[in-house]
């Protein structure tokens, strides 16, 4: 490993490790691109792809992201964008959960839904996409419906769970499992022009309180469907929250819920 480090340091431009050198190091030392990234970050070298992150995140922050594991429950409208942004951010391990395959009606909004992926498992498409976008990130695909019976096993060891589900009752199951495992949960939901965002830490029951009176029914999305832009907006807000929770920075949307209305362009905070 010290050979590798010497080699990386010789080639670094200042403290930046160029992609071509990261790739060469992996080939030369017969290790993965991901392992090269770990050695670089642990020894003060920043993979050059992250150089525009560095005024926001120090090297230790980038290393913390690399060592983080985030679960994305649902790989549809919200999940596709969340996975993309987590991978570009440099979150080291992403657990992607969804039982479905891509269908034609997904293509108006779901980032990973392209003609070549029709009929392909959403989690398999996510793994292929992440491998193309940032091969240093490991995506663990789980092609199952998330629920009480498998949720604990799926979320074990995750630092944050991002909600990209399309069912309120499964969201509440997810919230219970996060509670049990002490995992912070970032909630997002969308319908038409509208969406909600909320972050919940262990011990809090904001989400459960929010949906108590009628968890079994679906919401506005059944009538409105979803356009291309609402998932991208809410997914990005969720990733900002995940990033803040992982790095313990800023003020999360905690004990309050953000109501997002893109039709009247109103963002209203609901105290919970």
């Amino acid at each position: 490993m010290s050979d590798l480090l010497t080699w990386l340091k010789e080639r670094a431009k200042g403290d930046l490790l160029l992609w071509a050198d990261q790739l060469s190091a992996a080939n030369r030392y017969k290790i993965s691109i991901r392992e090269v990234e770990g050695v670089a970050l642990e020894n003060g070298l920043l993979p050059a792809r992250y150089q525009r992150n560095r005024n926001m995140f120090c090297l230790d922050d980038q290393l913390k992201l690399y060592n983080s594991k985030v679960a994305v429950i649902g790989c549809g409208g919200l999940g596709g964008y969340i996975i993309e942004e987590l991978a570009r951010l440099g979150v080291g391990t992403i657990v992607a959960v969804d039982p479905d395959v891509f269908e034609e009606h997904n293509m108006n909004r779901q980032l990973l839904a392209t003609p070549e992926f029709l009929g392909i498992k959403k989690v398999a498409a996510a793994a292929r996409r992440v491998d193309r976008v940032n091969p240093a990130v490991e995506l663990l695909p789980v092609g199952l419906a998330f629920g009480l019976e498998n949720g604990k096993k799926i979320l074990e060891g995750c630092h944050v769970a991002a909600d990209a589900l399309d069912s309120i009752s499964v969201r509440l199951e997810m919230a219970e499992i996060c509670q049990e495992l002490n995992i912070p949960l970032v909630h997002g939901a969308i319908a038409g022009w509208y969406g909600y965002l909320m972050t919940q830490f262990p011990g809090e029951r904001t989400l459960q309180k929010f949906f108590t009176h009628n968890s079994q029914e679906s919401g506005l999305e059944k009538h409105l469907g979803n356009p291309s832009f609402t998932p991208a907006v809410v997914a990005s807000l969720e990733v900002a929250e995940v990033c803040k929770v992982l790095l313990n920075q800023g003020t999360p949307m905690r004990k309050r819920c953000l109501s997002i209305d893109l039709l009247d362009m109103e963002f209203v905070e609901i105290e919970c």
């Binding site: 649902g74 409208g77 909600d163 589900l165 319908a191 969406g195 506005l220 609901i270």
Partner: peptide, 20 residues
């Protein structure tokens, strides 16, 4: 929802949204 309203209050109603 069973909250009894007092005169002069402002109530705000938000729809349920569950899509992803």
């Amino acid at each position: 929802t069973d909250h009894v309203l007092q005169t002069g209050v402002t109530i705000s109603l938000f729809p349920k949204v569950g899509g992803g």
